[in-house]
Design a protein around this nucleic acid. Structure first.
Length: 609
DNA sequence: TGCCAGCGCGCG
DNA sequence: AAAGCGCGCGCTGGCA
């Protein structure tokens, strides 16, 4: 029996007390629903009858296939409520994961898909929306969803939140229709998607991605440890710094009156009236001095000696950092851990995304505020040059391939081509080019190389290399480079013609949609998608690694080309590190001739109490 | 006040 | 004919 399951909940943050108040199921013949009673004055408190609880667990246990649309979410909800879910993993299927395999570039929203593939209308959702919005108005004394509520502390007023969606519980009757419709949708879509996956020979790719769901589930559960007190100190420090900077700016410039550098009018007055800078760029619409990023950068560049501008820049950086840190604090649980959502289908390729909060974009200057808890060590592995490496082997130029095979730098090889004179001078004086020109020529070469991988053609590549004619030099010396870009775009068009599906196939066999109106992205999708696939397989390998298992190590973070693993101090050994390193590299070696993982050991920097 | 779009910025 | 990719999130300002 294939049983589709869905939960309706009092919010999305199960780590802070949001809970399921309605569980619906559909086995293709019958629908089931189990309604909990929400305490209207304490939305986190929900009770089901003993019989219902038993029946829910029985149905979960006895189904042959358990089907979800976004299984990770519902399973967390069920588990946090008290149901046993650990033994269910082998029979779990997920229509979101399936649909991403089939249609990576499209929306995976349940209603959208059900309408598209089954003509299933959205009346249930429309009715529920009206009812809930009405109920929120007429039940103001209830514990309705609002910014700052303790069951979703991370969601704040300014964000793009539809609060009414958290209050479905106000309309239990409409919810039953809605919840049952969702499991019918899910059940129906699965038979369509499963057939398509089989037809297209994508079952293997789907299964690997399903393994990632379980891995991500565990990662989310362990969480990412932060040093809460340090974060608070840092916020206080940055706020002081900002205040001091404003005082300095006032002293420096004689500025009086309101000054909020975040407000365009204030900023404009500051730059062009107080500092009396000469505007270099103007807005198209009104012809006023431009405050765009580029324009401000130009002003700062052209007025190096204006101290107030430097102070202003520092103020802006501090402001961004305060925003990040405040958000981390809001999401932090009592154990000083953040349980972000690892979003497997969060990108148009095979990468993963993080939400609530995003832990893939932590400011490097703030990294020290995260680290292992007392008694733990973090092992931070990095797949060295993974995208460049994949690209080089795909391009297949002999020299470039040889560079990687010998462990030499491809960036330097290209630098030598673009700057022969400077390169020769470096060699003559025994100064490495990448040291001598670390922040200039070498950095620009690296930037340009990545631009090409990302699909840049002549104009943009030259601009990024900061060298006119760079692209044509490279094309001449490495003719396989432009040929590769062309061939990947051609692959997309060929697939469009043959299968009416414009896509490229990555290493690992995963197929990625390429929008026909942006064919130039094909190359990047293929490279990034292949790298994403490899890191995914690395995660699978690591979590099956015998040393990883026997050391009770835990994968806790993935940032595209890096994996962080947490292990108890007493279980940390060189043998463990070597074994994991090998497991990670094996994922790459399955598809390309070389693969290297580097690592760093991160210890607890906190002074023990 | 809520909603939306645009922009900027952090990471890879 | 021309085209540098992928994310999440906070802030601002316009609009109802």
């Amino acid at each position: 029996m294939i049983l589709a399951v869905d939960t309706e909940t009092t919010g999305t943050d199960y780590w802070h007390g949001c809970r399921p108040f309605l569980i619906t199921m559909c086995d293709g013949q019958h629908n089931y629903h189990f309604q909990g009673t929400v305490d209207p004055y304490d939305r986190g408190s929900i009770t089901y009858t003993q019989e219902d609880k038993k029946e829910i667990q029985r149905l979960l246990d006895e189904a042959q296939v358990l089907l979800f649309h976004n299984s990770k979410f519902d399973l967390h909800m069920l588990e946090e409520y008290g149901f046993k879910i650990n033994h269910l993993w082998p029979k779990i299927q997920d229509t979101i994961i399936a649909h991403h395999c089939l249609s990576s570039g499209e929306s995976h929203a349940l209603k959208y898909l059900a309408f598209k593939y089954m003509d299933y209308d959205n009346k249930d959702e429309e009715l529920l929306e009206v009812a809930v919005k009405q109920a929120r108005i007429s039940n103001k004394d209830f514990d309705i969803a609002r910014a700052g509520h303790h069951t979703f502390p991370g969601l704040s007023a300014g964000e793009r939140i539809k609060w009414w969606k958290m209050d479905y519980w106000l309309c239990p009757e409409e919810c039953i229709t809605y919840g049952l419709s969702d499991v019918e949708r899910t059940w129906g879509l699965w038979s369509i998607f499963y057939a398509a996956l089989t037809d297209l020979d994508l079952i293997h790719q789907y299964k690997v991605r399903m393994q990632l769901v379980q891995i991500a589930y565990k990662m989310e559960k362990v969480g990412y440890h932060i040093y809460t007190e340090d974060i608070k100190d840092e916020i206080a420090y940055l706020k002081d710094l900002q205040e001091g900077l404003i005082v300095q700016i006032r002293k420096e410039t004689g500025l009086v009156g309101d000054f909020d550098p975040n407000k365009p009018e204030h900023l404009s007055r500051f730059l062009f009236n107080v500092l009396e800078l000469t505007p270099t760029q103007f807005t198209e619409a009104r012809g006023t001095p431009s405050l765009a990023k580029g324009a401000i950068e130009e002003l700062i560049r052209e007025n190096e000696t204006v101290k107030a501008l430097q102070l202003f820049q520092r103020y802006k950086i501090a402001g961004t950092q305060i925003g990040y840190l405040n958000s981390y604090l809001k999401w932090t649980c009592a154990n000083d851990r953040i349980h972000s959502n690892v979003f497997i289908t969060g990108t148009r390729e095979t990468r993963q995304a993080y939400r609530d909060p995003n832990l893939q974009n932590i400011d490097k200057r703030l990294r020290h505020l995260f680290g292992p808890d007392n008694g733990y060590v973090w092992l931070d592995f990095d797949l060295v040059n993974i995208e460049l490496r994949i690209w080089v082997y795909q391009v297949g130029n002999k020299e470039l391939v040889a560079a990687f095979n010998k462990g030499e730098s491809v960036h330097l090889l290209i630098a030598k081509q673009l700057y022969p004179t400077e390169y020769a001078a470096c060699e003559a004086s025994n100064t490495p080019f990448n040291k001598r020109y670390k922040d200039t020529l070498y950095q620009w070469v690296k930037n340009g190389n990545f631009a090409i991988i990302y699909g840049a053609t002549e104009r943009k590549a030259d601009e990024t290399y900061r060298l006119k004619g760079a692209y044509s030099l490279i094309a001449k010396r490495f003719p396989e480079v432009p040929a590769y870009t062309t061939s990947v775009i051609q692959e997309m068009w060929d697939n469009f013609e043959e299968y009416h599906w414009p896509h490229v196939t990555c290493l690992g066999g995963y197929k990625l949609d390429v929008p026909t109106d942006e064919p130039f992205v094909a190359c990047n999708y293929k490279i990034q998608g292949s790298a994403g696939w490899i890191i995914g397989e690395a995660m699978v390998n690591v979590t099956k690694d015998p040393m990883y298992l026997s050391s009770n190590a835990k994968l806790i973070q993935q940032v595209h080309d890096s994996l962080v693993i947490e292990v108890k101090e007493e279980n940390h050994s060189q043998e463990l590190v070597d074994s994991i390193k090998k497991s990670i590299e094996a994922a790459g070696l399955k598809y390309i001739p070389t693969c290297e993982a580097s690592y760093e050991i991160i210890k607890n920097t906190q002074v023990p109490f």
